Amino acid sequence: MARLSPLEWPVLRQLRSGDSLGRGPAVTSPTTRAVRPRNATADRVVQSICPYCAVGCGQLVYVKDEKVIDIEGDPNSPISRGRLCPKGSASEQLVNAPGRQKQVLYRAPKAKDWQHLDLDTAIDMIADRFIESRRNGWQELDDQGRKLRRTMGIASLGGATLDNEENYLIKKLFTAAGAIQIENQARI
């Protein structure tokens, strides 16, 4: 390690620089002067919304070489004004987690192992099961012959990460399908 010159002693730097209170450049170390923001090397900045709750805090996503390197609060967001909660601040870890699943996994009934499926096959399986559950649980009339036109085979539990528009569309979809058990995590 290089020795510190007496001319670089903090008191002498304070007198030379005119930093009489010792709160500015006189007390800044060379290491501190060399520090750069971790997002200074980003290729681009993308505006986004935090995925954790329905508040909709704005985020700035810093991307380098098509990989997320940092996520911060968006100071231009009228909702959060640049602030993020602890979960929102950890969004980068969600995106870059080494254990993050990037393929659809399916485990057949009574099977021990998971298998990879392509997205179209998985969506078709879900749609087929949805239609079958609706058909099997359908109630057209009650005991007195009154119209019910509902299914007891489908229920929906929405999450609080969905915004109002998404919850509105989900409610419309499940109501049109005849489901009556439609709930949201935010109300439970």
Rank of each mutant, 00 (worst) to 15 (best):
E8I: 00
Q115R: 13
E132I: 04
P30L: 07
R107V: 01
E166S: 13
A90V: 06
A26T: 09
A155K: 11
R146C: 09
A122F: 04
E72P: 01
R3I: 06
N136H: 09
M152A: 10
G22V: 10
Q14W: 01
G58T: 08
L117C: 08
K171V: 00
A26Q: 12
L157T: 05
P109L: 10
I182G: 08
V63W: 01
G99T: 15
E8F: 06
S29H: 12
Y52L: 08
D113C: 00
S89I: 05
R135P: 00
N76Y: 09
Q47C: 05
I170K: 02
G73H: 02
P75Q: 02
W138I: 07
G145A: 11
Q103F: 11
V63T: 02
R81W: 04
P6W: 09
D128F: 06
P10R: 09
L4W: 07
R135Y: 09
I182L: 14
V61A: 01
S20H: 09
T175F: 05
D120N: 12
S20K: 11
R149V: 10
R44T: 04
T32E: 07
E66N: 15
D142S: 07
Y168N: 05
D163E: 07
V55A: 13
R135A: 08
P109R: 10
K110D: 15
P6K: 14
D142Q: 10
T31S: 11
S133K: 05
S156Q: 12
L119W: 13
A122W: 01
D70M: 12
D120K: 12
I154P: 01
L7E: 11
S5Q: 13
A40L: 05
G145I: 07
E92P: 00
Q93F: 07
I154V: 15
C53T: 05
R135K: 14
E165F: 13
G22M: 14
I131R: 12
A54R: 05
E92M: 09
L157K: 05
V45M: 03
T28G: 01
G99E: 15
K87Y: 10
R100G: 13
R149K: 14
L84Q: 01
E183K: 12
D74R: 04
I154K: 03
K64Q: 14
D65C: 02
F174S: 10
L157R: 12
A177M: 13
K172G: 03
L169E: 08
G73T: 06
V104Y: 03
Q47Y: 03
P98H: 13
T32C: 02
D118W: 03
M1L: 14
V61F: 01
N39K: 00
T28Q: 15
S156E: 06
T32K: 14
R149D: 15
K110W: 09
G22W: 11
T41I: 11
E92L: 08
G18I: 02
I79F: 02
G56Q: 11
M1W: 10
R38G: 03
A127C: 04
V35T: 02
L162E: 04
D124V: 05
A2S: 15
A54W: 02
T161H: 09
I182V: 14
L15I: 14
P10Q: 10
R44N: 00
F130S: 03
Y52W: 14
R107N: 03
